[in-house]
Design a protein around this nucleic acid. Structure first.
Lengths: 221, 221
DNA sequence: TCTTTATTTCATATTTTTGTTACATAATTT
DNA sequence: AAATTATGTAACAAAAATATGAAATAAAGA
């Protein structure tokens, strides 16, 4: 679960980050342009968006990312409390609108409601694809109830792909989600991990469902 | 689009009904038990739920219908504005929470945001021309739901042409878009790729729509 | 600390895509 | 109709992307 906070007040941004950091991975952007850049990776489960931002304001950010087919749920978090601002926020593609000052617990409840809605697997502890089953709490994967041996990031990557079955996930997305895109390593690690996962799946003849989309990424399908 | 309003104050319920009646079909329930009965039909796109209700209160309604696997988005509309009420509302499976008094326009904006989100087409990214359909997210093309086999740049080119149906696209435009203007290759590659795409389309007798405009370029029409 | 396990890097093999050429075919002009 | 020019296409060559084993490094546990 990864959240992007687009908010220029650093203190507030950090407060939110700290409040959420136990339950989510957090990235922060501090102006509109940076926000668009981050959002375009399409690796977030929710975006928290301020409206008054330097360079590009929140409306522009929202408009731009929706135009680019980034459909991540967006919660607008702002001091602007007029009806017309709210209407504009929803009209441009926002999913929720919360005005400052706000209770952190309410923000969290709203975020969780959005996540649970957009990712039906959220409350599930298990995700399955045919007889491949992954247990998220215990970080284990099974095929026909036999346990696969996957190391940490192999599991992370499989979980990510399982969460988005039948959708192509680019290597950059996988890299961004698991390594964080400011990481030093090259995206070749993604291939190495893909290879490792495949090797495990092959034992049960499940490697056939782990597809490479050349020039793009991977997909479980 | 069908909405269920579970609200015991008849005046308010009717006001909402009248406000929405042009855009949605509306049903009204006036106590919790009736609300559950209606909701269980599972025919609504959104439910507007009051908390203080006769017979069964809103929390009980929400709890019950979620237990019965009714996953219709629920907007809680209530005078209860304490944090603990809000948290409970989300925790029991609510999707949004709006306190009375409220602006009708805001209610509408929030309802529309929920509907848009739960509409599966919202996530789709497809372009069609007759029975030729391309799925941009998954980079696949279909004719009569049978998948075409197109390699990377073949898909890119078809996507470009599909995006501009009935418009002539010059070879230079295609070249510029897909290869980049500073590329080393000659524009003959465009012809080669056109040929490849046509070969695929021919299997379904769709090559007739892939037209060459001599001296200019190509067009899907 | 030492040991074990996980992660990353690197080198090489493999696969697939892409580009080029040469010639065939079709359209246009003379 | 012949000549000219543009386009189509198959076959091959080249380049690029990906897969993977193995070694090196880093991190975690005992």
């Amino acid at each position: 679960m990864r959240i992007l906070i687009i908010e220029d007040e650093r203190v507030l941004s950090n407060t939110i980050r700290d409040f959420f950091k136990e339950d989510f991975e957090i990235d922060q952007a501090f102006d509109g342009e940076e926000g668009i850049l981050y959002a375009k990776q399409d690796i977030y489960d929710v975006i928290i968006l301020d409206l008054m931002l330097p360079i590009k304001d929140g409306y522009q950010v929202l408009e731009q990312i929706r135009k680019d087919k980034i459909l991540t749920p967006v919660l607008i978090l702002t001091a602007k409390d007029s009806l017309s601002d709210k209407l504009q926020g929803f009209q441009k593609g926002g999913d929720d609108y919360l005005t400052k000052p706000f209770a952190k617990e309410e923000l969290k409840a709203r975020i969780e409601a959005m996540v649970r809605r957009s990712n039906p697997n959220f409350y599930k502890n298990e995700i399955t694809f045919k007889d491949l089953k992954i247990d998220i709490n215990n970080r284990k994967a099974y095929i026909n109830n036999e346990e696969l041996t996957l190391q940490g990031k192999q599991f992370d990557m499989l979980e990510y792909l399982m969460n988005h079955q039948n959708r192509i996930i680019t290597k950059e997305q996988i890299f961004g989600k698991i390594w964080g895109f400011n990481s030093e390593t090259t995206t070749n690690v993604v291939e190495v991990y893909a290879s490792g996962i495949r090797k495990e799946l092959k034992k049960y003849d499940y490697d056939q469902y782990f597809k490479t989309i050349r020039g793009v990424g991977y997909m479980i399908s």
